[in-house]
Structure formats: structure tokens, C-alpha cells
Design a protein around this nucleic acid. Structure first.
Lengths: 342, 342
DNA sequence: GTGAAAGCGCTAACAC
DNA sequence: GTGTTAGCGCTTTCAC
């Protein structure tokens, strides 16, 4: 009983002295109305503050003007208000304001596959899914329902799927690796998360290729995203046991902070003995001592690109190509070596 | 054209060999059906994976199962992805997961009074409005439309309005002031924001009363929220010119960080010469040098309380009382004086 | 150029 | 107990 019974199309029609059809047509630029009638009706509608009811409109099989947002990365973390996962928090805000700028509503839908699903779930015009996994059940559900979607980061295992946007992960991975190399590191270890999403997989690919090109043996560690800082600190033990590499590239800020902490606790000095870099900037990276160099992702631009893609899809265009946004590398103390130290 | 034409009530009715009314009643526990029919219909519906269309249901004037969230504080900042405004980022996440836990969708609506409003805006079952202002146009709009709402922080100037929840600001303000006093501060300056919301106004009231009780002249500064760290640094000049107080209590973390920075740039040492505390923890507070003592708010619990209130309101209960959650004070170096320094 | 009428999927009177 | 039916507000044929 919560719905507002406000001004309806009937009220406008009566007031304007026309039929409801005329009102509908005037307001949606449909049909064949004289310019004069159109103008008049619009004037009356404005004056009355009429807004078409989205439900009724949606019911009649037009669009809802609303898109859903599913944060798979937070689903995996099992925590929708985690600390130090900046990029997602910022992504939600960015998506909301970008949606508003396009006259859309944004619904947050934590996990589509849990039951019961929130009622409006399947009425959305489309979805943004962040960081889908290999064989992601959310993707499967959307496809089965015939609901259009775009993804933040590609859908791993589906190179044909083109409706995605994200930072250019391959380019930024190379950026970080080059930076570390320029600072004197030959052997670089990679610490990735365990979620099988494009972020982890693409970085791994680039890393392995980089190692192959240089004929250095790769040193790859996997650490669950949810292990956070503590997990990173624990992993540092293994890294030290395996022989301290000249640099460690951790894909998440929390892992980077933990690894650095763990290394230093074991007497490994950063950046003198080894350097540490993070693939995703976060509070933990910025505020570790020494501060950890990191890639600053671009959730605002990415969210905008995704909404553009989604709108095109909803409009029926299917020539949509992936969009890549630019991440910036923020060099900080953790990779800054004194000239003397080289 | 985005809507999914899925299984409808008709399909279920046909399959179960009953009328659509029977299905509707069975699934909504209405009417007078035999237990057997009810069971049977439910079985068929489950088996077919039927979910009632939220739009059609909403149109027929039931509830939508969705609530809106308006972040007034970010509207004021003019930035929906600001850095270092932790509590709101966390509040969005908390509200989303608390909503899911109650089977509700959460829609983000950046600013209800900008036109055009997103289509679903007025179809929501209710709204959560964070930090409404004095004479807030969003509140006015919701009231005019007869849409129920609850607020994070009370509605200033409306002591009769009881549908809100928040941390107990008065208690936490006194907590901070006591802490500063215990650390040796008699004269304490307050730096509040300029948004006329309950947060700023309540803290100011408590502060003025505190000063009155102790017969010390109040020193009140106002600084726009959006001025951020730089604004705080600039304000430090005025504070020094007015005579360095024994402590400065800044309501926002960004202001606190700036003020401390500005003070130290002018040779005022923290915590030796003056102490700094923040009313809302944030990255800036945690990671300033020295680290700034701050109140850690409780967005998770507050969001839960607000959703409980809102659900009660939507269900028609009007005996709803404000809920207060607890903030924790995090003492850090900025207010930690060596015993010798006393 | 304009309007009457059907119907989207559902709920709730009201017959039977 | 169960089914028929009238809408909710809107878009969209299709007559006029």
C-alpha cells in the first residue's frame, strides 16, 4: 500500500481536453499529433508536475529506466561493507551518479542467486555485474532470463563476450612490472587472489608471459581475497622461505600491505631488500610504512563506460565493443630506491 | 523492451488446474482456500520457478519490496565517489546487505529534487534519507507525495519526528570532550560543518552546553564539508591567530586532518601544544601523523535499525521510536600525552 | 490528426 | 471453497 496515487495520465488528458492516447503520444514523441497539440499537452503536463508511473509503463513492456548492480567481488568477500576495498566502494558511488546523469535508477542487488531474490530483480532493464567468475551463476541466470548485462572486467572463459569495460589490465600489469624492472628487479613474484575472475586471470597471463620473455622462472602465489592483510602477512613467510625475490607484485592493496608487513617482520627491508607494489590502490597501500606503490583504478570512468554500453544494448544496438579505461601508477616509497642502492 | 516475459500467474493456474485467483491467494496467504489446494498450488509454482512480477503486483497497489536511499550528505558534497568519507561508503554497503537480508531491493537515488527524477523514484515502498537538512526539500517532497521515510540522524527543527536512527551523537560528543578534558584540555575549540543537519547541530548544542557548564567561552568554527583537508589547513591559521586552544574537536575526519596539518605547519605541535580529535573516523584521521583520535561510527548497525523502522512503517505501525546505536572512541596519538607533559 | 479500446500481470471485490 | 471480473496506469494498435 505504499504506492503514491499521484497525477495520472487521465488527469492530464482531462485538463488538456484530449484523450489519454494524445497525452501518451505527446510525451513520448510517438504517433502523429499536430505540433500545436503536442506543445499544449506538454505544457499542461509540466504545469501539473506529471511523471509517468514507471510501474505501469514497465508493465506495458516498455523500459523501466532502472538498472541493477551486482557486486560479485563483494559477494565473494561475504561482506558488503569491508574496509580498504576502495575501488568497489567508489564504484558504487560512481555508478549511482553516472546512472542519475543518464536518467536511470540504480538498484543494488547483492547476490542474484541467493533465494529469495528481491522482487524487482527480474524487472530491471539490464545489469552491471562486477568481476564475474568463470562459470558465474549470476551470468548464467541473467542469460537464462534473457536480461541484458555488461560486466566490469571481462567474463573469463568467454573471449567472445564483448559487453564489458574495465581498466586495461594487461597494459597496467606491464606498467607495474616495467617500473619494478627499471628499479632494478629481475625476479618478481606475483600474489594474486583466488577468485577466478578476469582481473586475477589476466594479470597472471601477463605476468607469466613477461617471465617467459625474460627467461626468468615465474613465482606465483595465490591467496584468497578474504584473507586480507593477515593472509598477506602469513604468506610473507612462504615467500621468504622460497628465497626473497627482488620485488613482490600483489594484486590487492590489502595483500600488499600484509605481505610487506610480514616481510619486514622477518627482517626483509622494503624497498632496500625487496620492493612491493599493489595492483589496486587502497587505504592499506597508501598508508603502509613505507607507502606502497600502486595502480589507481578508474571506477568513475569505468562506470560511465559501462552505463553507455548498457544503454546501447538496451536500445538494441549489438555492435558494442569493450571499453578500456586508464589506470594510473602511483609510485611510492616501497619501490623507490636510492640511486646509491642500485 | 527489456522486460522478461517469463512464467505468469496464468501459466501456473493452467498447470495447477485452478483459477488465477486461487494461485494469487495461495501464494499470498489470502482468501479461503483448502489447505490441500494451497499446498498443491505452491508445489506447482515452485516447480515452475514462478516469481510474481513485481511491477504488476506494485501496480495493483501492493508493495514493491524495494526501498530508496538518498545520501544527502553526498548531495551536498557534490561528489558521489569522494575519498575519505568512509562512513557513507560503508553505509551504502551496509544498507544494501541489510536490505537483502530482509528480502528488499535497495535503490540509490542521488538527489530526489533534481529533474528529471529517475523513473522508479516514486514507486518505492519507502526511503532512507541520510542526514537531512533543516527544511530539507527531499523531506518535503516525500511528505508531499505521501511516501514513508526514515532518516539517518534526526530531522533538525522537527523534534516531533521520530522515525530515525543514528549513533547517539550527544553521548559521543561528551565522550570526546571528556577524553580531551581528562588529557588536560580546558579550552576546546569545535570545528563543525556548514550543512544544517542534526549531526552538526546536535554536536554544537552539546558543545555549547559543555562550555557553559564549565564557564569557559566557546570557540566555534564553521567550515563547509566540501572544503575538506585543504579547508582545514587554512582554518588552522585562524585558529592560531585566535590563540591556540588546548584541543580542537573537528566533526569530520578530513577537517581534522587538515587542521592538524595546518597547526603543525605553523609550529604548533600535536599532541604536545594542542590535541586534535575527529567526530567521524576516516582514512585521513587514521593516517595522519600523528594519528588522530576519532569516533568510529556504526553504519552497519544503524542501517539495520533504519530498515527495521522502515519496514514497521510500511507495515502500518506508527509507534516507531528513534533508535540509537553506539559509536566507539578510538584514542590515537593526537590526544595521547606523555605523563611528563601534563 | 485524433481517440476508443485492448491488454501487460496481478490483486481484491464479489458472485457462485 | 472457488472462480469471474473489474480495474491499477500506461502504451499501442486500429478505427475514425
Amino acid at each position: 500500500m505504499a504506492r503514491t496515487r499521484g497525477i495520472t495520465i487521465k488527469d492530464v488528458a482531462r485538463r488538456a481536453g484530449v484523450s489519454i492516447t494524445a497525452v501518451s503520444h505527446a510525451l513520448n514523441d510517438k504517433g502523429t499529433l499536430s505540433a500545436a497539440t503536442r506543445e499544449h499537452i506538454r505544457g499542461v503536463a509540466d504545469e501539473m508536475g506529471y511523471t509517468a508511473d514507471a510501474l505501469a509503463r514497465g508493465l506495458r513492456s516498455s523500459t523501466m529506466g532502472a538498472v541493477g548492480l551486482v557486486l560479485r567481488s563483494l559477494d565473494a568477500l561475504g561482506d558488503y561493507a569491508p574496509a580498504g576495498v576502495d575501488v568497489f566502494e567508489r564504484f558504487v558511488g560512481a555508478a549511482a551518479s553516472q546512472a542519475l546523469a543518464r536518467g536511470l535508477s540504480l538498484m543494488l542487488v547483492p547476490d542474484l542467486t541467493r533465494v529469495p531474490v528481491p522482487p524487482l530483480t527480474f524487472s530491471m532493464d539490464g545489469y552491471i555485474v562486477t568481476n564475474p567468475h568463470v562459470d558465474d551463476p549470476v551470468i548464467a541466470l541473467l542469460e537464462q532470463r534473457g536480461i541484458r548485462y555488461v560486466t566490469y572486467g571481462g567474463v573469463p572463459g568467454r573471449p567472445d563476450f564483448r559487453h564489458w569495460a574495465s581498466e586495461d589490465d594487461a597494459a597496467s600489469a606491464r606498467l607495474v612490472l616495467s617500473h619494478l624492472q627499471a628499479a632494478g628487479a629481475r625476479s618478481i613474484a606475483l600474489v594474486r587472489g583466488t577468485d577466478p575472475n578476469a582481473w586475477n586471470l589476466d594479470h597472471q597471463d601477463v605476468y607469466l608471459q613477461w617471465c617467459a620473455e625474460r627467461h626468468v622462472p615465474p613465482r606465483l602465489y595465490e591467496l584468497p581475497e578474504r584473507a586480507g592483510v593477515d593472509g598477506g602477512a602469513a604468506l610473507a613467510g612462504r615467500i621468504v622461505d622460497d628465497g626473497v625475490p627482488e620485488a613482490v607484485f600483489c594484486l590487492t592493496g590489502r595483500h600488499a600491505a600484509g605481505v610487506q608487513q610480514g616481510l619486514m617482520a622477518r627482517g626483509v627491508r622494503v624497498p632496500e631488500h625487496t620492493m612491493v607494489a599493489a595492483g589496486s590502490d587502497s587505504e592499506h597501500a597508501r598508508n603502509s610504512r613505507p607507502a606502497i606503490s600502486a595502480l589507481e583504478l578508474n571506477p568513475v570512468e569505468s562506470a560511465g563506460a559501462l552505463l553507455d554500453l548498457l544503454q546501447a544494448l538496451i536500445a538494441g544496438e549489438d555492435t558494442v565493443a569493450p571499453r578500456r579505461t586508464k589506470a594510473r601508477f602511483r609510485p611510492r616509497a616501497s619501490t623507490r630506491r636510492q640511486p646509491a642502492a642500485r
